[in-house]
Design a protein around this nucleic acid. Structure first.
Lengths: 174, 174
DNA sequence: TATTTCATTTAGTAATTACTAAACAAACAT
DNA sequence: ATGTTTGTTTAGTAATTACTAAATGAAATA
C-alpha cells in the first residue's frame, strides 16, 4: 500500500488534533501546530488557514495562544508585511514555557485558594474534632501542591530537559 | 473576620472545582472529590448529591470515573445496601493510578498514530528533500513521546512518589 | 488622502459537554 | 409475588466552547 506524502501529513495532523483535544485544548490548535511542524518554510496566517481548513480569524486567535505557550514563533520577513509562523522543535523548551505560563494562570489562582482555606481555618480555630480533621486534610493537600510546584519550578530552571536529564531521573527512580 | 466551618468547606470545594475544570475535567468532579475529601465518614450517593447540589444520576456517573482514576474508593457496610465513597488521601498513589488509566486511553491511541505515521513514511520512501524533512520531524516527535512514556512508566512503578523521591529528583535536576 | 493588504475583534452559530429528570433494573424485605 | 430502596441508564436540556463570517483596525503604499 502506498500513500502520498500529503495523505500521510493529513493523518499526522489528525493525530495531533486528537492529542490536543485530549489535553483539553481545541483540536484546531493541534492541527495548526502539526501543519507548522511539518512545514519546512514559515507559514502565513492565510496559508495556515488554508491547510487546516479553519478561518483566518480562528487561526489568528489560536496561533496567538500557541505563541504564548512557546509552541510556535512569530517572525516577519522584511519587505513583507505578513506575519510568519514556525513551530518550536525543542519540546522540552516548550514544556518549560507552558509550565511558566501556568504560573500566572487560573490554576495558580485555584491552588492559592487552598492556601487561603488553610489560613481561614487557622483564623477560626476551635477545639473540635471536625475542625482538626478538616485542617489536617487541607494541610496535606496544600503540601502536595507545594511539592508539585517545586517540581515544576525545577523543570523551568533547567536549560534543557534533554534525554540526558530524563535518563538521570529514571535512574534515580529505579 | 470569622467564618463558619461550613463556609470554609464550601470555598474549598469551589477551589477544587476550578482546579478540576482547569485539568479538563467537569467541575462537578472536583466538587465531589472535595466533599468526600473533607468528610470524616464515607458518604452515600445521595449524601454526595445533596452536598454538591448535583443530581444522583450525575454523581453516579462521575463518581464512577473518579473511582476508575483511583481518586475515590467505593465501600459498603453490611446490612446496608447503599454504596459508600471515600476519597483517596495518598495523592501520589492517585497520580500513578491516573497515569495507568491513561495508558489505554484515547491519548495512547493518538500517540500510536504518530508511530504509524512514521512507518507509513518508511513504506513510502522517496529520495526527496521534503520527505527527508518530514521524516526527521516526525521521528523527533516520536522520540519525545517515548521519553514522556518511559517517565510515566517509571512513576507508575514507584510504590510511593513520596517527598523523599521528589527531593531526590530535585537534587538530580539541580 | 485614498487604497490595498494584512491582523484582530466582534457578534452570532454550530458542536460539544455537563447536567437533569425520569424511567429502569437489581437487590432486598415483607 | 409486591413494594421499597438503592444504583444506573437514557433521552432531553442547559451551558460551554470552538468556530465562522463579517466588520474593524492598523500599517503601508500609491
Amino acid at each position: 500500500m502506498t500513500q502520498s506524502l500529503n495523505k500521510i501529513k493529513k493523518d499526522f495532523t489528525e493525530g495531533l488534533s486528537q492529542i490536543s483535544r485530549f489535553w483539553g485544548f481545541p483540536k484546531g490548535m493541534g492541527a495548526i501546530f502539526a501543519v507548522l511542524y511539518l512545514s519546512p518554510a514559515a507559514l502565513s496566517l492565510d496559508e495556515i488557514a488554508e491547510q487546516t481548513g479553519l478561518t483566518k480569524g480562528a487561526v489568528s486567535t489560536e496561533v496567538r495562544t500557541l505563541a504564548r505557550m512557546g509552541l510556535v514563533h512569530r517572525s516577519s520577513k522584511l519587505g513583507d508585511r505578513k506575519d510568519y509562523y514556525t513551530a518550536e522543535t525543542d519540546f522540552y523548551a516548550a514544556i518549560r514555557s507552558i509550565l511558566q505560563e501556568r504560573q500566572n494562570s487560573e490554576f495558580d489562582r485555584a491552588v492559592r485558594s487552598v492556601k487561603e482555606t488553610l489560613t481561614a481555618l487557622e483564623e477560626n480555630w476551635v477545639e473540635d474534632e471536625e475542625w482538626n480533621f478538616v485542617y489536617e486534610r487541607v494541610k496535606a493537600l496544600q503540601e502536595f501542591f507545594d511539592a508539585i510546584d517545586s517540581l515544576a519550578k525545577a523543570v523551568i530552571r533547567l536549560e534543557s530537559l534533554g534525554l540526558s536529564n530524563v535518563t538521570k531521573i529514571l535512574s534515580v527512580l529505579k
